[in-house]
Computed example of a mutant assay.
Amino acid sequence: MLALPFPTIDPVLVQIGPLSIRWYALAYIAGLVLGWLLGRRLVAMPRLWGGTSPMKPQDLDDALFWATLGVILGGRIGYVLFYNLPHFAAHPADIIAVWKGGMSFHGGLTGTIVALVLFARARGIRILSLLDVAGVVAPLGLLFGRIANFINSELWGRPADVPWAVVFPNGGGVPRHPSQLYEAGLEGILLFVIMLAAVRMGALKRPGLAAGLFGMGYGCGRIVGEFFREPDVQLGYLAFGTTMGMWLSVPVVLAGASLAAFALTRKRAS
């Protein structure tokens, strides 16, 4: 059976004594920093908002800190609750052991939304407009995160006989779908192109539209990706061959569609 060998990439980029810099951490940093830079550029262009930007580029400097907390805390709490609650209930000290792995995007998404809503209320910024900025830049973080998953040889796909199947070091010696790269393409590259096209077509002039489009795009891309991704071993397949990732993505799609529909009923900024 044809299969591609896993590329020789050390998950640790630099090791200095007990301190190690991992690709996974750099992926989080790259996603947040590039998202922050793009967000500043968006809010510095009043024409994208119908003549007046709802916030200043400096506002995003502080929003970055809030979003980082939301991603980390929400991602970890989401993993604990949705993916391995029995283990953490029996070993509560492991909850803070984030270096052992275990983050949930859906939890991180929820945490980021809560953090940005609180930040917007504190600053007097229109909440939906801030969420729109986050929706446009979020695919960058997803792209880097999925590539880091591939480098870490984690969250690999189901057994496959396609010519591009990969034999992961800890995947049981079986050729598998490189589902991390599928998701990087769907949730990262494709969704980012869609979001930029939406901005170009005036989506930011309707508060909530870009955020809604992101919810629909991510949710659909994640559901498609789950058909190729091996489910978490402690959960396995759920009812009708579904996975936890699919079920968690359904409300994201529905919420995104509802938000986009609401935004389209509002008056468009001229």
Rank of each mutant, 00 (worst) to 15 (best):
A120T: 14
Y79C: 05
A30G: 10
L64H: 05
P175R: 04
A165C: 06
V33F: 13
L254N: 05
L85E: 05
L130V: 12
A89K: 00
W164Q: 02
F150Q: 06
M244D: 12
G236H: 08
D232H: 08
A122Q: 15
P11F: 12
G51N: 08
L235S: 09
R200V: 00
A120G: 14
Y237T: 11
A263F: 09
D62I: 02
L13D: 11
V33P: 13
H106Y: 06
A263I: 03
F150E: 06
F119N: 13
D132E: 14
V133T: 08
F65K: 02
H177R: 11
L19V: 14
Y182M: 01
E230V: 01
V33G: 07
L259F: 13
G171R: 00
G219N: 06
V224T: 12
P18D: 09
A211E: 11
P169T: 03
I9L: 12
S258E: 05
A120V: 10
I151N: 00
P231N: 03
L248K: 04
V224N: 03
I29L: 14
L116D: 14
P18V: 06
V166K: 10
P5A: 02
G173R: 00
F119R: 06
L196Q: 07
V133M: 03
S153Q: 14
V117G: 09
L34H: 06
S129Q: 12
M45S: 13
G219L: 04
L34E: 09
L128H: 13
S129Y: 06
R121L: 15
G212H: 01
L143V: 08
L48R: 14
G188T: 05
P18K: 05
P231E: 04
A44T: 09
L181Q: 09
G157R: 06
L37W: 15
L60G: 06
S104L: 01
I189P: 00
I147Y: 02
I189S: 01
L140C: 07
L116N: 12
M55C: 13
A44W: 10
L155T: 09
G208P: 15
Y28P: 04
G188L: 00
Y79W: 11
G70N: 08
W49G: 02
N84H: 11
F214D: 04
V253W: 09
G107I: 07
T265L: 14
P86V: 01
D59S: 11
A27N: 07
G188D: 08
P86I: 01
A97I: 03
G225Y: 01
A122R: 15
M216I: 15
T265C: 07
P54D: 15
D10M: 03
G75I: 04
Y28F: 13
V43Y: 11
A197K: 01
G208N: 07
Y237C: 10
A263C: 08
A260Q: 07
Q234K: 04
P178D: 12
A27M: 02
L248A: 05
V233D: 12
I223D: 12
A203Q: 04
A203F: 04
G157W: 05
N152K: 05
W247R: 09
V43P: 07
L69I: 15
Q15H: 08
W23K: 02
R229V: 01
A89G: 00
F82C: 13
